[in-house]
């Protein structure tokens, strides 16, 4: 028989995990529903997901392609492979924060694992990411960029990215419940970071003073873990892989502990 004792539950970091597993069907349903709701009402349906990165790439390639013609061949592939990672991380975290801060009313009404929304947001983000990889492949074929066996590394890259994004989403959602302007501050920060991260341009154009800071930009590590096998057609360096995995795991751990320990306060605060 089920028992609940408010005073004697396991540590929140473990308890939340157990509960999420118990409510796994809810997590799957919510992930599916986000997708359904987003695309049901538009005629083009799933094609929007394909079209969006394609259009973005075309516009930016027209605008900046000639600028980097000598340093970056096949600019569209370079651009899109970086852009996809960037979009995945920022859109997923923003969506997760939004659902927690504004749509988390359900948590006040009934018990469900508090991380449900965030797992669903990341699940939805990963699916969108996979679909946009299809548009990346389309572009690669179109401009005749070489494919290599390094593509076998892509699933690992996506897993690392998903782990990092989940951790970051947990951290940001926790903050956004306590400080409502987290959403706005984050918005400004990522806008600045977008231009400070070599996504649209090669790292080589930065001045030596600026490029020494690049090693401290976690987003560059995450972009490179995906962009290297796609654009440069070789596996990322071992040191890069280690850095990316450590970054992802530390973020996940920090996010999970912060979120689960503050989760009980959500019902008071939302």
């Amino acid at each position: 028989m089920l028992e609940y004792d408010s005073a004697k539950s396991p540590p929140p970091a473990i308890d939340e995990f157990v509960q999420l597993f118990r409510y796994r069907d809810l997590v799957f349903l919510m992930t599916g529903n986000i997708l359904k709701n987003r695309y049901k009402r538009s005629m083009l349906g799933i094609f929007w997901m394909l079209l969006n990165p394609l259009l973005q790439t075309i516009v930016l390639t027209i605008a900046f392609g000639t600028m980097f013609k000598s340093s970056l061949s096949h600019y569209a592939v370079y651009l899109l492979s970086g852009l996809l990672v960037w979009n995945f991380i920022t859109q997923t975290t923003q969506y997760a924060m939004g659902t927690m801060a504004y749509g988390g009313g359900l948590l006040k009404k009934i018990y469900i694992p508090r991380a449900t929304y965030i797992v669903a947001a990341v699940g939805n983000g990963v699916i969108n990411f996979l679909v946009s990889v299809v548009s990346l492949i389309v572009i690669i074929f179109f401009i005749d960029h070489p494919f290599s066996t390094a593509w076998f590394f892509i699933p690992v890259s996506i897993l690392i990215l998903a782990v990092f994004t989940f951790g970051l989403a947990l951290l940001l959602s926790t903050a956004s419940v306590f400080f409502t302007d987290t959403v706005d501050i984050y918005q400004v920060l990522i806008q600045a970071l977008f231009f400070l991260t070599p996504i649209m341009y090669p790292p080589s154009i930065l001045s030596p003073e600026l490029s020494q800071f690049l090693a401290w930009n976690p987003f560059l590590i995450l972009i490179e873990i995906f962009r290297t096998p796609v654009y440069a057609n070789h596996l990322p360096d071992a040191s890069l892989i280690v850095n990316a995995i450590s970054l992802a795991l530390i973020t996940l751990l920090a996010g999970w502990i912060a979120f689960t320990n503050k989760a009980d306060q959500l019902a008071y605060r939302l």
């Binding site: 005073a7 004697k8 948590l107 009404k109 019902a267």
Partner: peptide, 16 residues
Amino acid sequence: ARVIRPKQGRVFLKGR
């Protein structure tokens, strides 16, 4: 209903 976990005191429930 487990929506709010009290910071003081204890709630004990048996069953669904």
